[in-house]
């Protein structure tokens, strides 16, 4: 745990999280802070429990032990307080998780319709169109059904729905998985722009080293049921743990780092 988390405002605070499936322990006393306004990249091997962590923070899965606070509220809360949390967070699931029976625009309207019933339908429609355009899709995509979209477009549409309520906190589960390198790079850039412009705090699960180097402020590595290390990339790279070393010093990591170096120059 890097020192001095207290001086930053914390958006998500996880303490002593324990998650078990039967006899298999996924998290064993996991602590994690996501600071306000940062993009936190969460990495870890397959089956290390990245997605389980996200589901626990979202309150989709009650943990066996530990406390989770999101924006100062406990996620184990009921009714009104959870509803407020849902209003202030947006989630992009792995394949977009768009509702297949609705068009893209209707998908983006769903959160607005659910949480702000007083907003009239013309304004709602206009807001949805704005979000669709913000994520780099054409307005004409709004009338299409999710099955008619490509993988990259589905992710963008999913992002538009996640951003529908202008959330403070955004959860992304492998946003660039399954995209071609050009599409992935464009998506990274989009995320960075939107996060800066909208002042988002982003919790980003990824396998994509390019994404880590291109847009993440801090990185948290999950392994052995806890957060092995979290901090800026340079700190994490230097951390002495076999998995971390292999991950950040493999050929792919070196390429990603080189690409990032070129970009900055």
């Amino acid at each position: 745990m890097s020192a001095g988390t207290s001086e930053h405002e914390v958006a998500v605070r996880v303490r002593g999280l324990v998650n078990r499936f039967g006899t298999q322990t996924v998290h064993n006393g996991l602590d994690l802070d996501v600071r306000r306004g940062e993009i936190l990249g969460v990495v870890g091997g397959s089956g290390s429990g990245k997605s389980v962590l996200m589901r626990a923070i979202l309150g989709l899965r009650p943990p066996q032990a530990g406390s989770i606070e999101v924006l100062g509220r406990s996620v184990s809360g009921q009714g009104e307080s959870l509803q407020t949390l849902r209003r202030r967070t947006g989630v992009l699931f792995q394949d977009g998780a768009l509702f297949s029976s609705l068009t893209v625009r209707e998908n983006v309207e769903v959160p607005i319709r659910t949480h702000y019933r007083d907003i009239g339908s013309p304004l709602r429609c206009e807001l949805a169109r704005l979000k669709i355009r913000l994520t780099g899709l054409k307005v004409s995509a709004g009338g299409k059904y999710p099955s008619e979209l490509s993988g990259g477009m589905r992710k963008r549409a999913g992002l538009a729905r996640a951003l529908a309520l202008d959330p403070e906190l955004l959860f992304l589960d492998e946003p660039t998985a399954g995209l071609d390198p050009i599409g992935a790079a464009a998506f990274d850039e989009l995320l960075r722009t939107l996060a800066d412009a909208l002042g988002l705090t982003v919790f980003l699960i990824t396998h994509d080293l390019d994404t880590l180097y291109a847009i993440c402020d801090r990185v948290a590595v999950i392994g052995d049921g806890r957060v092995l290390v979290s901090g800026p990339l340079e700190e994490v790279e230097a951390f002495d743990h076999p998995w971390v070393r292999d991950y950040f010093n493999g050929p792919r990591a070196r390429q990603a780092k080189a690409a990032q170096g070129r970009r900055e120059r």
């Binding site: 625009r105 704005l130 355009r133 913000l134 054409k138 307005v139 004409s140 709004g142 009338g143 722009t193 939107l194 800066d196 412009a197 909208l198 002042g199």
Partner: peptide, 21 residues
């Protein structure tokens, strides 16, 4: 200002509308 300019840009390229069912 950053938010404002992003939205103005997004609204600028109007493009074609949705296809009417």
């Amino acid at each position: 200002r950053p938010l404002f300019s992003v939205i103005v840009d997004a609204l600028a390229d109007e493009g074609e509308g949705e296809d009417e069912p």
